[in-house]
């Protein structure tokens, strides 16, 4: 009878490390550490607690958007609607709480449901209408942008009269310590991680991204699961929208365009492959942190903002180049 024992050679193992994506995650983590060390040497202000708090706080919105969109990207798709989608959830939260006078909790839930709905429509367009993800979510991005302006009358909705709204993000359950937004970010990392690695949703996310046709032939309702996955990503968009509104204590209808690209950049830097099938939320978290550490560090070093953007651009090039190397290797 047959025996098939695994006996990988050393070169096999080396190849494995590269192709498994583990390398890029290690690389991402190492770059984060190196960046932190570099900036703390370059500026004594960098490691001050207030600065670290600032970095973490500025990671939250992009970070949560990136977590959600990681799911979509692992399926081999892309979601461009998360930036303006986040804006629309902010605006809707404002509508519920300020215009309609509903309780804060209802407003928050309403915001998250709005996000879910945006995700659902994107998912529906992608799987049922078979519109390529890029186009479907590009359209959704514009729809959300326009709706935000229409609903808000093109002017910000202020929560100044809503007591405690600002504290959702900036208050602190642990007095004097980490702001809530940061806590929520880490909770979202945890929720996302459980979804992706411990549940049926996560399994099918990877399966679809790995080989959609084989997944379908295995008797899985790929269309249904894609809609679910886009909807989950939409929920993350909703949470990000609420945090954004709380941080600014207002819903800013003109803000949000461009956030989707930063979020996608964070996902890619974190080692998730744009061709699908590979990725992790811990990687995305690290990716988001790298983005904000870079921005913050460069600012502390008094590098003009224009140049900060240039640097981040190069970092993305580098990250995608590694993604390509990985693909070639496997």
């Amino acid at each position: 009878m047959s025996t098939l024992t695994s006996n990988p050679s050393a070169s096999d193992q080396k190849k494995r490390l590269v192709s498994s994506g583990a390398l890029q995650q290690i690389l991402a983590f190492a770059s984060l550490i190196i960046l932190v060390i570099f900036f703390s040497i370059a500026s004594e202000n960098f490691l001050q607690w207030s600065n670290i708090e600032g970095i973490l706080l500025s990671t939250t919105v992009i970070g949560i958007l990136a977590l959600g969109t990681t799911f979509v990207i692992i399926t081999g798709g892309i979601d461009l609607s998360i930036g303006t989608g986040m804006t629309l959830t902010s605006v809707m939260t404002g509508v519920f709480i300020v215009f309609l006078g509903l309780p804060v909790l209802v407003g928050i839930i309403g915001g998250i449901v709005t996000g879910a709905l945006i995700g659902f429509i994107s998912g529906f367009s992608v799987s049922i209408l078979r519109i390529p993800p890029f186009i479907a979510t590009l359209a959704m991005m514009m729809i959300a942008e326009g709706l935000s302006l229409v609903i808000s009358g093109a002017s910000p909705i202020y929560f100044s009269d809503v007591e405690g709204f600002n504290n959702i993000a900036l208050g602190s359950i642990f007095p004097g310590a980490i702001p809530n937004a940061v806590v929520i970010f880490f909770i979202m990392v945890l929720i996302g991680w459980i979804l992706l690695s411990k549940t049926i949703v996560g399994r099918y996310t990877f399966s679809i991204g790995s080989n959609e046709e084989a997944t379908r032939l295995s008797g899985i309702n790929v269309k249904k699961w894609k809609m679910i996955i886009y909807t989950i990503a939409g929920c993350f968009t909703g949470v990000a929208g609420v945090i954004m509104a709380s941080r600014l204590n207002s819903a800013q209808p003109a803000l949000g365009m461009g956030y989707e690209l930063e979020a996608i950049a964070a996902v890619v830097i974190g080692g998730t492959s744009l061709s699908g099938g590979k990725g992790s939320l811990i990687g995305t978290m690290i990716g988001a942190l790298i983005m904000s550490v870079l921005t913050n560090g460069l600012r502390i070093m008094s590098i003009p903002q224009e140049w900060q953007t240039v640097v981040i651009g190069f970092v993305i090039l580098l990250a995608v180049y590694f993604d390509m190397l990985r693909k070639k290797d496997s």
């Binding site: 399994r203 990877f206 099938g277």
Partner: peptide, 13 residues
Amino acid sequence: MPDLTVAENIFIG
């Protein structure tokens, strides 16, 4: 599905 494990592939669905 190349990115899933052996067992995950066999029992997919």
